[in-house]
Design a protein around this nucleic acid. Structure first.
Lengths: 214, 214
DNA sequence: TCCGACGTACCACGTACAGGGTACCCGGGC
DNA sequence: GCCCGGGTACCCTGTACGTGGTACGTCGGA
């Protein structure tokens, strides 16, 4: 049985192009829909192997469509298709359950390759631009991690490392062989440099920047 | 000034190949190293634009090398290079600060393209197989994680969310419309369930388990 | 039916924390 | 020479925090 696919895309030209490309690569198009509602109904009726979902649909958001399909028809893998790579969009789609994220315009081979990748199940096609967003999120948001204030000194990193793991000032002082008052100085400087004001915030930022291992 | 690159790779054949490919694409190779220690020293000395780091180095792990370079020479972007795509490896490297993740064997064009992508800064080259691991992690259905002790109630998660972002008990009380004393009860229960005793520890564990986004 | 488990809510006490000071040493410039 | 900035080190004060209590409603099983 050939791989069965559907497309949920409001631009009919794009929709036809998708059908053409996939058919040419040996997939079977079992339907297309122009709205989210129709697309979900189509997916439930046909239970295709893969669904190409445009994120720029009118009314219902592509994210919601993907989430609905993942919920109702888990067997169907969803690939998000969009012209924009706004971080919130990328993350929303992937969180919703998209197995891949392709940016328009795409090459014919790119699309077919992505579908094959997803179906094989051992990989997830993600455009480099989308991947950057993913990475940023994984590391703790903050667009462009680099150059966030002055670097911490070696001693300051030692203090931070101990602090964020729940040790008290007294513990830190003991471990480093300095007075508790001195620890407080380091903490103050660390807070200034990291622009935070509590241990909790410092801990969050520290892991986000990879200064300490969780 | 041309883009300056280094390679940290113990297999000399691969190392030469990298140099060859990058040189052919107009990059300047300013050094190669066969061990992590040498690589870090090289990076500090040359401060290259990009470093290709093999994850399968003897002795020192590639993750640690990347982390060290990101720490000491933030300007240098690191691209992880490996033959295996073990989830822990992928995540470790990306968490350590790798801007890209390329699987061996790679095509010549692929490598050059990845370096260009990373330097342009608007995208992150991630191999499809590595991307799959990333996605799984992002969605939280990664191996282990989950099921660490009793689950927090909705209210407790709300308190935790606010707490770990540095808000005081008073702030939390205000935001949730309850008394400060009540917040303390939640904090106690949260600490018990998570088996921690400070805000900093709770913050670490919360991000580690994906309960809150950093 | 009653009782226990759990989520919710509040108070009081002692301590650890955040932020205000001050001081010394060292290396690099003006 | 001199001062200046950054790293190191210490003290003091008010506050937020961690932990000990108590109490009430609800749900489900003994």
């Amino acid at each position: 049985m050939p791989t069965r696919a559907i497309a949920i895309e409001d631009d009919e030209a794009v929709s036809r192009l998708i059908a053409q490309v996939l058919t040419a690569h040996g997939f079977e198009m079992v339907g297309t829909a122009a709205t989210g509602e129709d697309g979900i109904a189509l997916a439930k009726r046909e239970v295709p192997d893969v669904a190409l979902v445009d994120l720029g649909l009118p009314k219902m958001s592509g994210e919601d469509v993907i989430a609905a399909i993942r919920q109702e028809v888990p067997k169907t893998m969803c690939i998000a298709l969009t012209a924009v790579d706004i971080p919130a969009r990328v993350l929303g789609a992937l969180r919703a359950g998209a197995a891949g994220y392709i940016l328009k315009p795409f090459h014919a081979g790119e699309l077919a390759r992505a579908v094959e990748d997803v179906l094989r199940g051992d990989s997830a096609p993600i455009s480099p631009r989308a991947a950057k967003v993913l990475l940023a999120e994984l590391r703790g948001d903050a667009p462009d991690q680099r150059n966030h204030g002055p670097a911490l000194s070696k001693r300051e990193r030692e203090v931070l490392e101990l602090l964020v793991h729940g040790h008290t000032y007294a513990d830190v002082a003991n471990a480093l062989g300095i007075a508790e008052g001195t620890v407080q100085t380091y903490v103050k400087r660390i807070y200034e440099k990291m622009d935070v004001s509590t241990k909790a915030e410092a801990a969050l930022l520290a892991v986000a920047r990879g200064l300490v291992k969780p």
